[in-house]
Design a protein around this nucleic acid. Structure first.
Length: 217
DNA sequence: CACCAGGGTGGTT
DNA sequence: AACCACCATGGT
C-alpha cells in the first residue's frame, strides 16, 4: 500500500502550490495540453503568446486558419507540423460539437472516450485535459509518477491501473489535490533528486535535503 | 557532442 | 502486449 496522502503532503511541503494551469480560458488549456507534449512549458508559453497575438486561442478562429499559420506560431514547441494539424483538427472537432460549453455537459467517462478518439490525444493528455480544463477528478499517470512509485515499492512493475486505484483511494475526488499532485510530481521529477520514501512515513523532502536514501539509478 | 523537456502514433515482433 | 523509430525545437 502506497501512502499517497503522505506523498502529496511532503511534495506540497517541499515545492508549495504549483498553480497549474496558467490560462485565460478552458480552450487555452486544451491547446496547451496538446502543445506541451514532450516539450518544456517555456516553449509552449512562447507558442501560446503567438497564438494569442494572432487571435487563434479561439475555436472559431483556429478552425478556419491555414495550417501554415498555426505552424509558424507553434514552431517553438517541436513536432510543429503534427501538432499544428492536430490542434486545428481539435478546434474543428470542438466547433462541430457545439463548443467547449457543450463538451462540459458530458459525463467524465464519455468525455474521456471522446478525447481519446482524437488524433494526437493519448491517455496522459486526455486525463490532463479532463483534470485541468474540465475540473474532473482524474489521476494523471505520467512517467515521473511511474518512476516515483517504482522506487517506493521496490517491487518492479506496478500497472497503471493499480497506480490509479492507489492514488484514487487516498485522494478520491479531491480535484484540487489531484491537480496539485500531478504538478508536484512533475516539479519533483524535473529535479535531480533521486531520493524517495519507501513507505508512507518516509518524507520526500527530508530525504532530499539529507541526500540519503534512494537506491535507484 | 550528448541529453532532456508536463507524449503519441504507426509499425514490427 | 511489449518494444521501436519517428516526430523537431530549444536549452544545458
Amino acid at each position: 500500500m502506497i501512502g499517497f496522502a503522505a506523498v502529496y503532503d511532503s511534495l506540497f511541503d517541499e515545492y508549495g502550490p504549483q498553480d497549474w494551469w496558467p490560462a485565460d480560458n478552458r480552450f487555452e488549456i486544451v491547446a496547451g495540453a496538446l502543445l506541451v507534449q514532450r516539450t518544456s512549458w517555456e516553449n509552449v508559453a512562447t507558442a501560446i503568446d503567438r497564438l494569442r497575438e494572432q487571435g487563434l486561442l479561439d475555436v472559431r478562429a483556429l478552425e478556419r486558419v491555414p495550417v501554415g499559420v498555426v505552424e509558424a506560431c507553434i514552431r517553438s514547441t517541436g513536432f510543429y507540423r503534427a501538432k499544428a494539424r492536430r490542434l486545428r483538427n481539435l478546434a474543428r472537432f470542438i466547433g462541430h460539437s457545439g463548443g467547449m460549453e457543450a463538451l462540459e455537459q458530458q459525463p467524465t467517462p464519455e468525455l474521456r472516450r471522446i478525447l481519446l478518439a482524437l488524433d494526437g490525444i493519448g491517455e496522459e493528455t486526455a486525463d490532463a485535459i479532463l483534470l485541468y480544463a474540465f475540473d474532473r477528478p482524474v489521476v494523471v499517470v505520467d512517467e515521473y509518477l511511474r518512476r516515483l512509485v517504482r522506487r517506493m515499492t521496490a517491487e518492479g512493475r506496478v500497472s497503471d491501473r493499480e497506480l490509479r486505484d492507489s492514488v484514487a483511494r487516498h485522494l478520491a475526488d479531491d480535484v484540487y489535490r489531484l491537480n496539485e499532485l500531478h504538478a508536484l510530481v512533475v516539479a519533483h521529477g524535473k529535479t535531480s533528486c533521486r531520493a524517495v520514501p519507501r513507505c508512507a512515513e518516509c518524507v520526500l523532502s527530508r530525504s532530499c535535503r539529507t541526500g540519503s536514501g534512494g537506491s535507484d539509478a
